[in-house]
Design a protein around this nucleic acid. Structure first.
Lengths: 191, 191
DNA sequence: CCTATTTCTTAAACTACTTTATTTGCCATC
DNA sequence: GATGGCAAATAAAGTAGTTTAAGAAATAGG
């Protein structure tokens, strides 16, 4: 039961479930542990689940043809992560998701997800709010990418995700900001 | 009734409403016409509504301190538009929304939006899917911003929104791609 | 504790894109 | 048919960020 406490608190931020609904919900979750560097989802594979992070830290990134990695998102405890495009449209994933540190996640398959939405309509509200917040975050990121120079993007990132940024190395941060690790090094040492 | 046909078709893409629900829903919508260049939402004002575009074309953009405009999104017939951050969090808007051509929109106030979600729980599903698609779009845009040079971003934009891009001038497209109009001119004339 | 491997730093040459300025074309209107 | 005003084109000079390469520092593994 202990491994579900965190996800239930997460749900309770937005909706109230009855004890029966709670049981139904968690009966569809499958616990998985990941070692450092282990891959949860492989780029170009079908993505048939969404994951809740209990513990640890994950990174979603796409590997381009030129060999460059672009980090789409990081997820730490209490975050949901998947390749939303692939999950929703049942397409091949455009990202890989890997554990940056030993991690523990709860897996909710697409089938179970849809069944749960059907059986517990309140979950529509929950995921509506989740998607809404994700949209707001991504839109802000797009805007900042267009409007701001690298140094400011870096400062914002550090302030917005202090605990995450402390655990990341330079290459990982650079791949999120869209700059080279060399240039990030310059930014860091010039200020 | 004619002005509601388009939004009802939009709803029907994802949910089925009863005739009573349809009446309730449209009773909360307020029709508004906009002239070319007219502003629907002013940056730094509170944003207390979401808009469905019946006809025309709108643009959401933020004006930075250095005088530069950054276009967040365009919306044409059959799209929903607002400053989602300001709408959801009840904050001051970070964008202005203006009509690029004479336009007609349906306004749904935040209060009515929340009341409708309460009275017609099926709408949670509708907006969940709307937010989900918006999230997917923005995430893809973020990734492309990081990974691709200006020329490719331009080609993708033209292909993804052919009818929109044809109606825009160079400055408007450039402000969406995050480049200067001069550089876009170069891209266009070098190929 | 030593070595191997990865991560970070630094710097010089390079490129994509910006800035500034001038010119050209394009309609709208009197 | 001239005139004003805005959108687009062009080009030269400047800048933010990349590339490449080499060395220093940190970390991990045996």
């Amino acid at each position: 039961m202990k491994e579900f406490r965190c996800v239930l608190t997460n749900l309770e931020k937005h909706i109230q479930l009855t004890p029966e609904e709670v049981n139904l919900f968690i009966s569809h979750l499958h616990h998985a542990k990941l070692q450092k560097q282990e891959t949860l989802l492989e780029q170009a594979a079908f993505c048939d689940a969404i994951y809740f992070v209990n513990e640890g830290m994950l990174r979603a990134f796409s590997l381009a043809e030129d060999g460059k990695e672009h980090t789409v998102m990081f997820a730490t405890s209490d975050w949901w992560i998947t390749d939303m495009f692939a999950f929703v449209k049942e397409q091949k994933s455009v990202v890989s998701i890997e554990a940056l540190v030993p991690s523990s996640v709860l897996r909710l398959s697409k089938l179970d997800y849809e069944e749960l939405l059907f059986q517990i309509p309140k979950l529509e509200r929950f995921f509506r709010i989740l998607m809404q917040n994700a949209y707001i975050r991504e839109q802000r990121r797009s805007m900042e990418n267009l409007a701001l120079p690298a140094k400011e993007k870096y400062e914002i990132f550090k302030n917005r995700y202090p605990e995450i940024s402390k655990q990341l190395n330079q290459k990982q941060i650079a791949s999120y900001l869209g700059i080279t690790p060399e240039f990030l090094s310059m930014i860091r040492n010039n200020s």
